[in-house]
Design a protein around this nucleic acid. Sequence first.
DNA 1: TATTGTTATACTCTATAACTATA
DNA 2: TATAGTTATAGAGTATAACAATA
Lengths: 145, 145
Amino acid sequence: MNDSSDPGKVAGAVMVAIGLLHRRLRQTSVSGDLSLPQRTALSRLDRCGPMTSAALARLEQVSPQAMGATLAGLEESGLLGRQPDPGDGRRIVLSLSPLGKRVLAERRSARVDQLATILAADFSDDELAQLAAAAPLLERLAEQL
Amino acid sequence: MNDSSDPGKVAGAVMVAIGLLHRRLRQTSVSGDLSLPQRTALSRLDRCGPMTSAALARLEQVSPQAMGATLAGLEESGLLGRQPDPGDGRRIVLSLSPLGKRVLAERRSARVDQLATILAADFSDDELAQLAAAAPLLERLAEQL
DNA sequence: TATTGTTATACTCTATAACTATA
DNA sequence: TATAGTTATAGAGTATAACAATA
């Protein structure tokens, strides 16, 4: 049995890789760029459509308070719109503002661009495909955790 | 061109997946278990052999101060040994203590065990192999960032 | 009673700056 | 002058607890 079929080994390797990469990714929450949680929330809102802060928190598996803080930053930047739900006075439905849509569509994030540049320059098509295949697996792993 | 060959798409997907999984992984820094940075440092020390705190910080791409804090926790738990370098009074060489070796060898980390269990139960051999292949790619990506 | 959202507080991880000791 | 390690301080991201408003 080689390492790639030992769940324990794979678990360890994934854990180390996640720690390393996350550390690097979060180090550019500066200079107007979106932070990692902000970027993720925006992307989720785009993929799943308008929803409340609570729903977003459940999907991203963070506390409602943490999501509130993340969204506050996005709102300040004018990337979000909020519509009070006419049928339920408690709920506020968030959606991408035109600006938010544009930022996301143009991938205007220094971090993502940097990542994309490295991927294009230093990774083969095969390796790119391997990463593309792994991303949803990692998401699935997170959901089951 | 499909998504798996568009560096921008892959970059975004990886970024979201890393954020999600990291968030889940760090949520068990409790109850005697190793934190994610601690686990990673221990594993690195095992893979690369005894070295100084500064060298470890460079490999893990964190500041020497951050590494110092991580190592302090490991030392308190008795997982590390430290030998002053006889030839250079400034350097202190860290190594795994017998206890540290055992903890690592037995994979005695609630988090890694949990991860391994999920991988064994809900992921096919193919998917496991995909994750195993992706881990070093993610590390390489982090190094080039 | 349950849910949405907010405010208050604290912990972890990380960073930068400044210091001491050694080379 | 440069490097190893430490101490002090600050910021981001997250958590739990407690609360108000609405259902």
